[in-house]
């Protein structure tokens, strides 16, 4: 970063901006930190002063077969959703990059629309539709529903990367003897590789956390977030803090991985 002349900076504005950023982070992360802290607290109810350090809630969670089942469903769904929505997103982004056609603006608007639909409506619609075609109530149904909301994220991420590609790169590959398929395999996909992996992690993270739609369509094959609601309805237990901390760490890890991959591609390339 370039060092700016300090004389061009108003210390008051600097201070205010810093305070603003710190407060925003505090506001966002305080509940998560609290949940994290209480997950290691031996007391039954979250209260201050804290009791002893304890991992009993984690042990309780680990001993619960329902949690394991939920986790297995969540991971299965997450991987499936990641792979399918990244593939779909790549196809949609490449279509936008390579072709011009009548109604392209409409195509783009429709492709990017699903995340803007309220999840309750989406969940309800999915349930109505999937039960009609006898697909509701299993992990496959959750995968289908999650792909609908995740594919646009994958498309957005990969589209950004394609926009950084020299428009001559693909024709250059054809010119050197690569068929369209070979150019796709040896030029377009390698060029997009960081974005493709980033999209994979982002979509997995979105699916991993998603509750409302999964609640509607998962039936007996509940994912972890749906299980957590089950815990809450039964009793308030610090086990929730333990599960929450775990889910948070997994999601954060996926997002940080995605950020690292995407940040590297966005860095200015020396031309």
């Amino acid at each position: 970063m370039n060092r700016e002349n300090e004389a061009n900076r108003n210390p008051l504005i600097n201070g205010a901006l810093l305070a603003y950023v710190l407060l925003a982070y505090l506001f966002v992360f305080a509940p998560i930190v609290a949940s994290f802290v209480f997950s290691f607290n031996s007391d039954r109810f979250p209260s201050i002063p804290l009791g002893d350090f304890s991992t009993e809630w984690y042990r309780a969670v680990a001993a619960d077969p329902l949690v394991w089942q939920g986790l297995r469903n969540t991971l299965l769904v997450g991987v499936g959703v990641g792979v399918i929505s990244t593939a779909l997103g790549f196809g949609a982004a490449y279509t936008d990059h390579r072709y011009n056609f009548l109604g392209k603006q409409v195509y783009l608007a429709l492709a990017l629309l699903p995340p803007t639909i309220p999840v309750v409506i989406m969940g309800l619609a999915m349930l109505a539709f999937l039960s009609r075609v006898n697909l509701s109530g299993d992990a496959g149904a959750v995968i289908i529903a999650h792909v609908v909301i995740c594919a646009p994220f994958a498309m957005a991420v990969i589209r950004l990367r394609l926009s950084q590609m020299d428009p001559s790169l693909e024709p250059a590959a054809w010119n050197l003897g690569a068929s369209e398929w070979a150019a796709m395999r040896h030029v377009v996909i390698p060029f997009c590789r960081p974005a493709i992996l980033g999209a994979l992690f982002v979509t997995m993270a979105v699916s991993f956390d998603e509750f409302a739609i999964a609640w509607f369509v998962s039936g007996l094959n509940e994912t972890l977030p749906v299980k957590v609601l089950g815990f809450l309805q039964g009793q308030v237990s610090p086990r929730i803090n333990a599960v929450g901390t775990f889910v948070f760490i997994v999601s954060m890890t996926l997002l940080i991985l995605a950020q690292l991959l995407l940040g590297r591609t966005a860095a200015p390339r020396k031309e």
Binding site: L169, A172, A173, G177, P190, R193
Partner: peptide, 30 residues
């Protein structure tokens, strides 16, 4: 891809994810 009419591009259009020698090998690989 079926004509042997290679071109040197204004932007050069070198493949940024390949090394120098891999770039040169590309047409032979294809």
């Amino acid at each position: 891809w079926s004509r042997d009419t290679p071109m040197v591009w204004q932007s050069l259009a070198l493949f940024p994810f390949l090394t120098v020698i891999e770039n040169v090998e590309f047409a032979l690989k294809m």
